[in-house]
């Protein structure tokens, strides 16, 4: 699904240093690009910042995006920047309400590419119900950036029934994953220089707040912890949970949902799907008595069809994640050391 918006007629085809000068060129870029696409009470003021008020507690999160290549199967840096921040807020049990949007553009970026990214941002933010209320644009010399870097910050109210905290993780809790592992990382790798291979794998980049809102509406305090396993993958996030909660985590390799094509690509590239990045799934540590119902609920919502219970919190092997392999062997799952491949988000 791609929103079509024709690019306005402009007298420049590429971004130049002048577009970041703050002067006339900057204004022309913003008028043609940002302000023609994004409208709301705050942004239309064209003030230095947004004036916001909230009746209750909020979550606040920031993230930067440097993915290479900028366009990849299933999305681009624009959707990713919106989804990334929306999802970070969702993991706190919050509904994203307002966002900032800040660009660092490299001199020479084509206006058409920038426009396509802006349109993706518009679509993604509307889909997520989040308003972009403030922003910034800078331009760096050619060779000092990589087309475009984006920083987004989001803020939004916390769900009244949310009680998400590391100290709520308890022995017996079930570990649920909301969808298939490793789609984003493999989609990015499939188009990286030196590594192109033919595949129909697309990134899973998507907003997760709707799934999370539904879970919190229905199950409230039974949701003990939420995490989105982006860089470092499921293995790294679960290792952090084991370390920080002081509990052991037992994983079942056979229960991990991995699409056939992704599993095959991982075999070829020598990667473990547990360590590959995701942008459209989350891990939930939940009360055991509600686990089955939570999975059933997730499976009924778009984006949650492949949800599964993949393990549980145990008293044995404290601070370690131990996976029972599909052949019955056991091994420790550690954090990702170093880089799998550069720049996946």
């Amino acid at each position: 699904m791609q929103l079509q918006c024709p690019m306005p007629q402009l007298d420049f085809e590429v971004i130049t240093l002048g577009h970041g000068s703050g002067g006339l060129l900057t204004n022309r870029l913003l008028d043609a690009g940002v302000f023609s696409l994004f409208h709301n009470d705050q942004l239309d003021q064209r003030h230095d910042g947004a004036l916001l008020s909230f009746p209750g507690p909020v979550a606040f999160s920031t993230d930067s995006f440097v993915v290479s290549p900028v366009f990849f199967p299933g999305g681009n840096i624009g959707d990713l920047a919106v989804h990334g921040t929306v999802n970070d807020l969702a993991m706190c049990g919050a509904r994203p309400q307002y966002m900032s949007l800040s660009f660092i553009l490299e001199e020479g970026l084509s206006m058409q590419e920038f426009w396509d990214i802006l349109v993706s941002i518009k679509f993604a933010s509307e889909q997520a119900g989040v308003q972009i209320v403030t922003g910034d644009t800078k331009v760096v010399e050619r060779g000092k950036g990589d087309k475009i870097f984006i920083n987004t910050t989001g803020i939004g109210p916390i769900h009244p029934r949310a009680a998400i905290a590391m100290d709520r993780v308890a022995v017996g809790d079930k570990v649920i994953v909301s969808g298939e592992l490793a789609n984003h990382g493999i989609a990015i790798m499939s188009v990286r220089e030196g590594l192109t291979f033919e595949t129909d794998i697309v990134s899973d980049t998507r907003p997760l707040h709707q799934l999370v809102q539904t879970l919190l509406d229905t199950f409230g305090g039974a949701i003990h912890l939420l995490r989105d396993p982006t860089r470092g993958g499921v293995a790294t996030v679960l290792s952090e949970v084991a370390r920080d909660s002081g509990n052991g985590i037992s994983l079942q390799q056979g229960a991990l949902p991995v699409a056939d094509g992704v599993a095959g690509a991982c075999e070829l590239l020598g990667l473990d799907p547990l360590y590959v990045a995701n942008e459209g799934i989350f891990l939930a540590i939940v009360a055991p008595e509600e686990a089955e119902a939570i999975v059933a609920t997730l499976r009924g919502i778009p984006g949650g069809e492949a949800a599964a219970i993949i393990g549980e919190i145990v008293a044995e092997h404290p601070r370690q994640v131990v996976m029972r392999s599909q052949i019955g062997g056991r091994r420790v799952v550690n954090m990702l050391a170093g880089e799998q491949l550069p720049r996946i988000c």
């Binding site: 044995e316 092997h317 404290p318 601070r319 370690q320 131990v322 056991r330 091994r331 420790v332 799952v333 550690n334 050391a337």
Partner: peptide, 11 residues
């Protein structure tokens, strides 16, 4: 050995 802690699972 480091990644998979073949040295042992701390029971």
């Amino acid at each position: 050995y480091y990644h998979f802690a073949a040295a042992g699972i701390a029971d």
